[in-house]
């Protein structure tokens, strides 16, 4: 089974994370964010708000200048064993599936993560089949990634991290470049997954569709944290942070 939802501790606990790039540019000014197990949260914000920088802190690729990140109770540190476990727990799906899928066949790519965890043989094959089935790509296991459609590639990219049985699934712009049907199919798949989900996006209707709760990150700070519907009906707030609803889309306040 992919991910088990249990009470406490929270899947993700980010406390006071500050980060300055080596050139001195401060990208995060003290970010606090808690995501309880099983919740789906959208991380909204304009370009350059620090969304991707924050995501790279979640699995220890970047180390905060100040503050701490805990994943399922485990503090992220640069210690090798901890880092390996943190990278199992946090499954990041990057924006461009061509960056994520680097091996010649779908099955090999899905096997890459669990194989890094030390799985081999039948157990590994089972993980691959299970993850591909979860995104409805089972029959494409031996195809080459560049022979798949963009939507299929994105689904395989989701499978590559599902195969590691993550505590939290982090998606960077999951709906970008998808045609409407592929976008809807992905939403159906994501809604059916029994995992905690953090979704970085500009696609406000998508956030409303999938996530009960949203946070807005702007200029390295969390500026709003509320039910998605409440945020999307607050036009002033959206305008202040360079977020816009698509033309003709008006969510009704509760």
């Amino acid at each position: 089974m992919i991910g088990v939802v249990q009470p406490t501790p929270p899947s993700l606990d980010v406390r006071g994370v500050r980060y300055a790039y080596p050139d001195g540019h401060v990208a995060l000014h003290g970010v606090d964010l808690t995501v309880p197990r099983g919740e789906r949260v959208a991380l909204l914000g304009p370009n350059g708000a620090g969304k991707t920088t924050l995501v790279l802190h979640l699995n220890g690729i970047l180390t905060p200048t100040e503050g701490s990140v805990r994943v399922g109770g485990l503090a992220v540190s640069q210690d090798r064993a901890t880092l390996a476990e943190v990278r199992r727990r946090v499954g990041i799906v990057f924006q461009d599936p061509d960056d994520q899928l680097f091996l010649p066949t779908v099955a090999e790519d899905v096997a890459f993560g669990p194989a890094n965890l030390g799985l081999r043989g039948a157990e590994l094959a089972a993980r691959v089949d299970e993850a591909l089935a979860a995104v409805g790509m089972g029959e494409h296991r031996d195809r080459a990634p560049h022979h798949l459609s963009f939507g299929q590639r994105r689904r395989v990219a989701v499978a590559t991290v599902l195969a590691m049985h993550p505590e939290i699934l982090v998606l960077d712009e999951p709906s970008s470049n998808l045609d409407p049907a592929a976008r809807r199919e992905l939403a159906e798949i994501l809604r059916g997954l029994p995992v905690t989900l953090l979704m970085v996006t500009h696609d406000l209707p998508y956030a409303l569709e999938l996530c009960e709760r949203s946070v807005i990150l702007d200029a390295g700070r969390i500026v709003a944290d509320a039910p998605t519907r409440d945020l999307l009906t607050d036009t002033d707030l959206l305008t202040r942070h360079r977020l816009e609803l698509p033309y003709g889309f008006t969510p009704t306040p509760r």
Binding site: L56, N59, I61, A84, R87, R88, V90, G91, I92, F94, D96, D99, Q100, F102, F112, G113, N116, L117, T160, V161, M164
Partner: peptide, 12 residues
């Protein structure tokens, strides 16, 4: 970016 994505899946 490929290398980052590999690291994120536990590449060592």
């Amino acid at each position: 970016r490929v290398y980052l994505a590999m690291l994120s899946r536990g590449y060592s």
